[in-house]
Computed example of a mutant assay.
Amino acid sequence: MDKKQKVLFLCTGNSARSQMAEGLLRDMAGDRFEPLSAGMEARDEIHPVAVQVMQEVDIDISGQHPKGLEEYLGKTFIHYLIVVCSKANETCPRIWPGLLSEENRFYWPFDDPAEATGTDEEKLDVFRRVRDEIREKLVEWIKDH
């Protein structure tokens, strides 16, 4: 039986931030946690630049796919819920069935790199920055959990 604690990263489209967080946690502590991700309004595919910037740090998320909240809500026991965008935080259920306590729900608002404007290089820089911010936050979170 798998004793890993399930961590659900939730955002709006499940195409960038939550997908990067899922891949990062799997790479950093996949022996301790089972990372999952979902979106309140799941997109059709992962943003290609998210896949690209994760490949830059030797993490392949190309096999992941966007999932809607209904994939897990009421079906999967979640140990930790981490909401990574403000829009999802506003619409996500405040109480998750099976979540042990409100202390296991975290709100980490990261900029949405999919909304970046400018040149392709400027957009790429935003994806890289958000990826690195998620990694930094996960390093600290893993220490405490």
Rank of each mutant, 00 (worst) to 15 (best):
D2N: 15
K4A: 14
Q5K: 15
L8E: 04
F9W: 08
L10R: 00
C11W: 01
T12S: 05
T12D: 06
N14H: 11
S15E: 13
A16D: 13
R17L: 09
R17N: 05
M20N: 08
E22Q: 15
E22C: 10
G23T: 04
G23F: 04
L24H: 04
R26P: 03
D27L: 01
M28P: 11
A29W: 09
D31E: 14
R32M: 14
F33T: 07
F33W: 08
E34K: 09
E34Y: 07
P35V: 04
L36I: 08
A38M: 07
A38P: 10
A38S: 12
M40Y: 11
E41D: 07
R43N: 06
D44G: 13
E45W: 06
H47C: 02
P48E: 13
A50S: 15
A50V: 09
Q52Y: 02
E56G: 02
D58F: 06
D58A: 13
D58H: 12
I59Q: 03
Q64E: 03
Q64K: 02
L69R: 04
L69S: 05
E70D: 13
L73P: 01
T76P: 10
I78G: 04
I78H: 04
H79S: 12
H79G: 10
H79R: 07
I82P: 04
I82E: 04
V83Q: 01
V84M: 13
V84S: 06
V84I: 14
S86Y: 10
A88N: 11
A88M: 12
A88G: 12
R94V: 11
I95N: 10
W96I: 14
P97L: 14
G98R: 05
L99H: 14
L99Y: 08
L100I: 12
E103V: 02
E103G: 12
E103T: 10
E103D: 15
N104R: 14
R105Q: 15
R105T: 10
Y107P: 00
W108Q: 09
F110G: 04
D112C: 14
P113G: 03
P113K: 00
E115A: 13
D120N: 12
D120H: 12
E122M: 02
K123M: 03
K123N: 01
K123E: 01
K123D: 00
L124F: 03
D125A: 13
V126W: 00
R128T: 02
R129A: 10
V130H: 00
I134Y: 03
V139T: 05
V139I: 09
E140M: 00
W141I: 04
D144A: 06
D144S: 06
H145N: 14
